[in-house]
Design a protein around this nucleic acid. Structure first.
Length: 262
DNA sequence: ATGGTAGGTCTCCTA
């Protein structure tokens, strides 16, 4: 069985419903995982996705902030979510497929501007969230699991436009990279995108604040698809839809795809 | 060393 999964921080689902339809039409993922819906669950549009054949879903909305969804054209069996850090934030949903594979979709906190747990509670929240992910994965002894989402961390030197200039910038600091690495170890996860595209700079996000983003190309790889090693050992391929950043009224993140032979 | 843009509303907060 082949399965193609997409992850995309959409930065408002209501504003970019058209773009989601376009991605579904043109790239035909079996499952798309979205983050930053910025909508209450009942305000998230679904009928156009259903009309395209995506009639299974689990949505965890939140007014104005966060919000995650898994939208699928293959059946989702058990679905649910965890309330990481017990703040009521809509940052996680999961679904199990009928072959036993579990998909988990995360929106990890961005962490604010200052990379210091003591002075910046948003950074503390980010580190606590990662710690809780690690603890959850250790407990479960995972297999047959794919986790995706906006992890808000670019772990490798070539996941940012300048390792040297970003090493003190939240998203690429050693403490975050170490915390994310511990999550990977705890869950027995392989970074599928980097496994498939091992060489060179690779980004999934470009700031809105750079008017010349395509020329300066100061991006970061914040969006990830990881799989437990049992899945990662089989065939897979990955793709980042960079052109989506050039669409009219774009998200600052672009869709990331991985196709698995399960 | 600084500020730049975008989205949803809480006309400020988050990213």
């Amino acid at each position: 069985m082949n399965i193609k999964i997409a992850t995309w921080n959409i930065n408002s689902i209501r504003l970019r419903e058209d773009q989601v339809c376009s991605v579904l039409n043109q790239h035909q993922p079996d499952i798309i995982c979205l983050q930053e819906l910025k909508s209450a669950t009942e305000s998230v549009p679904t009928s156009r996705f259903e009309n395209l054949g995506y009639k299974y879903r689990v949505i965890r909305g939140q007014k104005s902030y966060n919000g995650v969804a898994i939208i699928s054209r293959i059946p989702l069996m058990e679905t649910g979510f965890c309330d990481y850090c017990a703040k009521g934030d809509a940052r996680h949903v999961f679904a199990r497929l009928n072959n036993g594979v579990e998909i988990q979709n995360f929106y990890v906190p961005a962490g604010g501007d200052v990379a210091d747990r003591e002075s910046n509670e948003k950074f503390a929240h980010k580190l606590d969230f990662l710690q809780e992910m690690k603890n959850n994965f250790f407990k479960k002894k995972l297999s047959k699991t794919i986790i995706v989402g906006d992890f808000n961390i670019a772990p490798l030197n070539e996941d940012v436009w300048s390792h040297k200039q970003l090493t003190k910038v939240v998203s690429h600091t050693p403490i975050e990279i170490d915390a994310l690495q511990q999550v990977a170890i705890a869950g027995n996860f392989v970074d599928i995108i980097r496994k498939d595209i091992p060489k060179g700079l690779l980004f999934s996000w470009w700031s809105y604040r750079s008017p010349n983003w395509i020329i300066s190309d100061r991006g970061r790889r914040l969006d990830h698809i990881w799989a437990t090693s049992d899945i990662a050992l089989k065939a897979h391929s990955s793709f980042i839809l960079k052109e989506a950043r050039s669409w009219e009224r774009p998200s600052d993140h672009v869709p990331v795809f991985a196709e698995f032979d399960l």
